[in-house]
């Protein structure tokens, strides 16, 4: 603050020099100045390519030569292709497993870790290790864990009499397998977010609740969860976006010939663009994905008033 008050005259001079302009125009100019670096980036590296892709969505283009206008043909092809329909189901199924699984488990661990005292940072480091483990190592380890012939997981299961499934080969288990890996790897990030949220609630609310005779469970339901609801909203928006774009795991586990049961929307986009050279269809599919995500996010924000509480 002292630095601010140190130079009032200077600032006043600056203010008076702009006397001719209305407050509104001055604000607009100021906003543009502050926004300019990001606006240049947005325009050159995002909107520009996006327009190009939008044009492609209405064209036939194989990556080379001239594109020809295709109307809504690509969209019709995408919507009627059974392989893509399957990939949509797979993606939704993956999201339905991964997002709640991830959020519930990270929330539970975050609550438990609040009580872990000095060991917290050690545990947290362990939970974050998967975040920084490279996808190559992740694939190597999980290919081994999912292989029913050599996996220690399946020998452990077998010793208690359970026949473990052939995760990556069985069409019913391959998406759950990806969800398990995604939860395992994403847990650290969400855990850190939840722990931060919990710490910001502080103990005063909980102590007050305790004085009111609330049990541990009641505290959780009536105090902790409502106070964490903004964090929950933030994480659910960002993790649904991330989960709908799931692609890397399938690619590192199965390369470019994953079976239909394992293919997701973005996997199909890459496949159609770079393996089948059909950029028009790939762009059309990508725009449909973009629109659905916008819809889902808008819906989440529309219903948030009913359950999200802000501590004001």
């Amino acid at each position: 603050m002292s630095t601010l008050t140190a130079a009032p005259t200077q600032a006043r001079v600056a203010q008076s020099s702009g006397r001719g302009l209305s407050r509104r125009r001055k604000d607009t100019i100021a906003a543009l100045v502050f926004l300019s670096p990001q606006l240049v980036g947005l325009a050159a590296f995002m909107v520009g390519p996006l327009v190009f892709a939008l044009v492609l969505a209405f064209s036939d283009w194989d990556g080379f030569g001239a594109a020809t206008f295709a109307g809504f043909g690509n969209f019709a092809d995408v919507l009627s292709n059974p392989r893509i329909q399957r990939s949509v189901l797979n993606t939704v199924w993956f999201t339905a497993l991964q997002v709640p699984g991830l959020m519930i488990s990270s929330f539970v661990f975050a609550v438990l870790m609040q009580k872990a005292g000095k060991m917290t940072s050690v545990y947290r480091l362990c939970f974050v290790a998967p975040v920084v483990t490279s996808s190559v190592a992740v694939a190597a380890i999980w290919l081994w864990l999912f292989n029913p012939d050599i996996s220690p997981l399946s020998s452990a299961l077998r010793s208690i009499g359970i026949q473990s499934p052939d995760w990556l080969q069985d069409p019913n288990f391959v998406i759950p397998a990806f969800a398990i890996v995604a939860i395992w790897q994403g847990l650290g990030y969400q855990l850190v977010m939840f722990m931060a949220g919990l710490q910001s609630i502080g103990s005063s609310f909980l102590e007050a609740a305790e004085l009111d005779g609330c049990s541990g469970w009641q505290k959780l339901v009536h105090v902790t969860i409502p106070l964490l609801s903004p964090t929950i909203l933030f994480l659910s928006i960002t993790s649904i976006i991330g989960s709908f774009q799931i692609f890397d795991y399938i690619y590192v586990f199965m390369d470019s010939n994953a079976p239909e049961a394992a293919r997701t929307i973005v996997y199909e986009i890459v496949q159609i663009a770079f393996r089948e050279f059909n950029f028009g269809q790939a762009s059309a599919l990508a725009f449909l994905l973009l629109l659905s995500l916008l819809g889902i996010t808008a819906l989440q924000l529309a219903v948030q008033k009913r359950w999200v509480h802000y501590a004001e």
Partner: peptide, 26 residues
């Protein structure tokens, strides 16, 4: 968050088309 996706779909659309157009030229 209520301000994020709420009002004025048309204004947003207009703005976006305008920007897209300009960048399409680029």
């Amino acid at each position: 968050s209520d301000s994020l996706f709420s009002r004025s779909v048309d204004r947003r659309a207009v703005l976006r088309t305008g920007m897209l157009g300009a960048l399409g030229l680029a």
